[in-house]
């Protein structure tokens, strides 16, 4: 087990280098430089050149890359020029990450609860009307871009039945942690629920076909022939086997937190990292964008790592390889 994990962590190193190069390239693609926001038409060209030289922007790209990586390792992600002028990027992200995390975790848990219960319901009633409805529902939510459903949820639960606040995170820096935690729950729940309701498709389809496959296996027939009740076979054998591949997907829900937050946070006016990304892009705050991309890249790699570890842990056959 430890050897599997070690080998998997070693694979991450070239991946991390590749991710950092990709992000560096994207950062180079963006027009302007970090002084973009602090300049005005009257700035002296010599001053600009001096500032660029001091920041190392006149070096060849590979030296800039090494310098950037060095800064990142020391925790220096630069300074924001537009979103929160003068703040360090680490400070902005540190402030914005909690709302996104709380929303993302609630959304991930709810997604699993909803999709697993839908898959169980569908598989137990194969080809009956409830199965058909669930399949159509999940096909629809996967085909239609989900942000349009967010408007529906917004109108329903903020305006027609006003039980949730319309915008904000409920977090106030002057309050204590527990007060913030509970007031944030009220704000985070609706976007989280909305994300969950409309993203059940992949787990649902996978788990449903797994359950149907397992139901047709010989061991189920043997157990039934011995006289075991179908609900016991379901609980003790079918579920355990069908859940194995689902468990490994848990890692990837970490990867999706930031990407999924972009639309939910924009529609619901919930200022977390996703909204920050949109804000930074619209304002061309490139240090913030680069930092967010880096965060997302690291999250993606960690998600993959976690998934592989979980699947090696629950399924010994994976470890042998």
């Amino acid at each position: 087990m430890w050897r599997t994990i070690l080998r998997r962590v070693l694979i991450m190193i070239p991946q991390l280098i590749l991710v950092s190069i990709l992000i560096f390239m994207l950062a180079q693609l963006m027009p302007g430089d970090p002084f973009y926001g602090s300049l005005n038409p009257n700035s002296d060209p010599a001053t600009i050149a001096r500032m660029r030289h001091a920041a190392g922007l006149d070096l060849p790209w590979y030296q800039q890359y090494v310098k950037w990586v060095g800064n990142v390792i020391h925790g220096d992600l630069g300074t924001s020029y537009v979103v929160n002028k003068g703040w360090t990027v680490t400070r902005i992200i540190g402030q914005r990450i909690w709302p996104t995390l709380s929303m993302g975790i609630i959304a991930a848990v709810l997604t699993y609860v909803l999709s697993i219960s839908q898959a169980l319901l569908a598989a137990r009633n194969e080809n009956k009307i409830i199965d058909r409805i669930l399949i159509v529902w999940n096909t629809m939510t996967s085909a239609v871009p989900s942000f349009v459903f967010y408007f529906v949820m917004m109108v329903l639960f903020v305006y027609i039945i006003p039980i949730f606040p319309s915008s904000g995170t409920g977090i106030d820096d002057t309050q204590s942690f527990t007060t913030n935690f509970f007031s944030n729950l009220r704000y985070a729940f609706l976007p989280a629920l909305t994300i969950a309701v409309f993203s059940t498709n992949s787990i649902f389809q996978y788990l449903r076909s797994n359950l149907l496959d397992q139901q047709a296996q010989d061991y189920v027939r043997t157990a039934r022939a011995k006289g075991v009740q179908i609900k016991d076979v379901f609980r003790k054998h079918i579920l355990r086997n069908a859940f194995l591949p689902i468990a490994s997907g848990i890692g990837y829900s970490i990867t999706g937190i930031l990407g999924g937050a972009i639309f939910a946070e924009t529609v619901f006016g919930y200022p977390g990292l996703g909204a920050l990304f949109v804000q930074a892009l619209s304002g061309r705050d490139y240090t913030v964008i680069t930092a967010l991309m880096l965060l997302q890249g690291v999250l993606a790699l960690l998600g993959g790592l976690l998934s592989d570890i979980i699947s090696a842990w629950v399924d010994p056959r994976v470890r042998v390889k």
């Binding site: 991710v19 930031l258 964008i289 993606a300």
Partner: peptide, 18 residues
């Protein structure tokens, strides 16, 4: 495999905005 774990929407948004 590498590309599939990358956040396509975010990359596209950056390219489009530039």
């Amino acid at each position: 495999d590498f590309w599939l774990v990358m956040p396509l929407l975010m990359i596209l948004a950056i390219i489009f905005s530039t």
